[in-house]
């Protein structure tokens, strides 16, 4: 039942191929020039044998994935819902709201993976950084989990807000957190001790921390990852219930 959603995303990408490709190629360059380059002169890598550019690299790929996820979920779950467009018609199909939410989410995540692959290639030409195949596989595995987590958050936000201002305002706050508070770009060592301890247990921080542990230290923890996967499954189910109640169906 996921296939129609993936085909739909493919059709949508085809319809806007040039703008999509331009965005996919510009995004990593902009992120590198506007975030990594200035940050490299301000922030030190928390790992002795790893440069800041290399330390921030997995986080940058995750960031590309998250950014490319937002417009897809905004369009399908907020814009179309508020303006009673395509999504309302989809709800009449003989599939559960859970499958509908999962279908949209999977389509969005697959598209974001393509963005990340393009970003990876562009970043290789810009920075020259390259990891081994195993590391890339791990990064993609983490990106799928992180995008599902962030996608679930954006889904909840898109379903619960009724005004564009509320949606964008909350999203901006979230984006500030992703940029500066998730440990993706700025190491948590730069936060005051108590605040650092507090935010390191946020789900996204745990994922970013685990990702960097695996890539740079070769250490892998199953327990936090399993807990997060459980949270993601529960959250997706909760989103489908929110959707059902919002529609009164």
């Amino acid at each position: 039942m996921i296939i129609p959603f993936i085909r739909r995303r493919w059709w949508l990408t085809q319809q806007r191929l040039f703008p999509t490709l331009s965005f996919a190629m510009l995004l990593p360059i902009m992120l590198h020039l506007l975030i990594v380059v200035p940050m490299a002169s301000l922030v030190e890598s928390p790992l002795n044998n790893v440069s800041y550019e290399k330390w921030v690299y997995p986080g940058l790929l995750v960031l590309i994935g998250i950014i490319s996820l937002i417009p897809v979920l905004f369009r399908d779950l907020f814009d179309f819902r508020i303006h009673k467009k395509a999504i309302m018609y989809m709800t009449l199909a003989p599939i559960s709201k859970l499958k509908l939410i999962v279908g949209i989410l999977v389509g969005a995540i697959l598209e974001s993976i393509i963005f990340v692959i393009i970003g990876l290639l562009v970043l290789f030409f810009v920075t020259g950084i390259i990891l081994n195949w195993g590391d890339y596989l791990i990064i993609f595995g983490f990106i799928i989990i992180i995008n599902t987590l962030v996608g679930s958050f954006i889904t909840t936000l898109a379903l619960l807000t009724a005004r564009i201002f509320s949606f964008i305002f909350i999203l901006m706050i979230f984006f500030c957190y992703v940029l500066f508070g998730s440990g993706m770009i700025v190491p948590l060592d730069y936060f005051p001790d108590q605040l650092g301890v507090l935010i390191q247990y946020l789900p996204l921080n745990v994922m970013i921390h685990e990702l960097k542990l695996v890539i740079f230290m070769g250490v892998f923890h199953w327990i936090p990852l399993s807990i997060l996967v459980f949270i993601i499954f529960s959250w997706t189910y909760i989103n489908s219930e929110i959707f059902r109640r919002k529609l009164n169906q």
Binding site: P4, R8, W11, L12, K85, A93, P94
Partner: peptide, 20 residues
């Protein structure tokens, strides 16, 4: 209420696919 970025045919086809 069709998806404005998809063609008419794609809108119709997507609906058919959703219904199996």
């Amino acid at each position: 209420d069709m998806d404005p970025w998809l063609t008419l045919e794609q809108n119709m086809r997507f609906n058919g696919l959703l219904y199996g």
